[in-house]
Design a binder for these strands. Sequence first.
DNA 1: TCTTGCTCATACATAAAAGTATAACAACGA
DNA 2: TCGTTGTTATACTTTTATGTATGAGCAAGA
Lengths: 304, 304
Amino acid sequence: MSKIEPSWDYYRTFLMVLKEGSLSAAGRELGLTQPTVGRHVDAMEEMLGFPLFTRSPQGLLPTDAAQALRPYAETLAATSAALLRAASGQQDTVSGTVRISASEVVGIEVLPPILAELHAQYPDLTIELSASDAIEDILRQEAEIAVRMAAPSQDALVALHIGAVPLGFHAHRRYIERRGMPKTLADLSRHSLIGYDRETAAIRAIIARSPDLPEVRFALKADSNLAQLAAIRAGFGIGICQNALAARDPDILPVLADGFTMKLETWLVMHENLKTAPRCRVVFDALAKGLRAYIRQPEVATVQ
Amino acid sequence: MSKIEPSWDYYRTFLMVLKEGSLSAAGRELGLTQPTVGRHVDAMEEMLGFPLFTRSPQGLLPTDAAQALRPYAETLAATSAALLRAASGQQDTVSGTVRISASEVVGIEVLPPILAELHAQYPDLTIELSASDAIEDILRQEAEIAVRMAAPSQDALVALHIGAVPLGFHAHRRYIERRGMPKTLADLSRHSLIGYDRETAAIRAIIARSPDLPEVRFALKADSNLAQLAAIRAGFGIGICQNALAARDPDILPVLADGFTMKLETWLVMHENLKTAPRCRVVFDALAKGLRAYIRQPEVATVQ
DNA sequence: TCTTGCTCATACATAAAAGTATAACAACGA
DNA sequence: TCGTTGTTATACTTTTATGTATGAGCAAGA
């Protein structure tokens, strides 16, 4: 039963050529030379029996067949990276690499202090932070731990409910002094509103739960919640952001705080298999503690 | 950014050594020689920084660390197999390989005629049938299409509800002539019952829906539903099987057909990404049609 | 006790894959 | 228009990986 399977390395170079668009660039990225990369592609094409790229002097154009194979190659790459991370933590001590997936806002505004404290406690721990709104599938092992804004539906996942992150309209003090403070939701139509460009899953969930939201025209549309936050801080207008983030800056004022509230349920998600891995356990616990503290923060501020 | 990543082929040989338990056996299976396999393992150990196996003259014993890495390597193997299957169907025509996961009973008793007709229509199609009760995860790409007995909870899956497969007690005519036909559920305690050894998910679901099931002591316990079916056919005693299967053989009689009914909801599941793949589409449609016909079959038999 | 059969480890020869150098071609900008 | 920089493709060389052959150790069975 010794059938000849092609080298798995071919898939790696194939994916890199797909990503980079040329043999030369893929070679640079992989630490190989251009002829070698070309030979890998040739070998793979011959073994599959159909062309993967149409060659041209300005690069390689992938065929439809190559595009169809891409997700498999990406899964291979993600899995082998996960294997290496898992191997990095196999020592007796808490060490190695843990990859965390979180939204841009959480990854940039919320997590850094939590991770800083964690790293001070475990210096041998390396954290990979995938600060992107793309839903990296934990099941695909693209990350060990994820901060999610929706309850995970999958089995075989450890999901810890952190709590509800309150959201609200906010604006910079400068903007309010210039344009006045709206008293009702209807007043918003006379203001510069900062909103989303594309509808994401989180936004749809909010809209579904808030039927009294007026139809608004946004003065600034940005897909990135981080850009929206920056616009609020710059005094561009009124936008939605996490109350806890706004409370950090005394110049960011809540707008219509009584009339309108939204909540983002937050979950911490991890592979069930990783429960026993010390490095993941430690990061998971630190994130749970840190995020819960972050959520409690605004309530304390309100009491003041 | 040209960091040196180890060859992905190392993971393949690592997995095979894990499976086979020796360098020589792994080499035989992979079409490599024993020294090569040993070198791969050595290289991998050196790059990871810890031993994967403890060598001995009677084979290699995996360390805990190696066991921890095993699932990753298995995902890699499953994915690369899926890639090759996907590539096999990239031709313009309906061709290539499709892997189907189904329970033993369905795979052996129900699917063969459906697949035979399908293959007659598309001779270039190769079918891989994974006839095992193990729940092969469609998300892990271990199979393109699965016949499941529970509604899939995952998103990103195409799930077609086939219908409910009726189950019931059955016994061979010889057994009934010898031991008599039970009239009530209570009578079952005086009979030779064929039942399960371990509790599976499907069994737990049935028990939950049937609180009037008496506590019974099984005369024959078998994990394999196929073995149970064979025992019924051999006249061992009374067991549960699909009505449609029993109806095929006039010597298999329904027992307590009025007083006790169970149903197994059946779903056909496929990756959403594979909807457009012709070879998968064709198999999916054929299975849907064939399974629906199979389910309708017993009702017709009852009307007779 | 002495085969037989299995294992892993080592030394050496070979084959395969990589790198090097260069040519040919296209696009972009001065 | 011509040089620069990018691309792929080809011939040649070198390195690397693999295969072959062999030795040593352990276990089961005659």
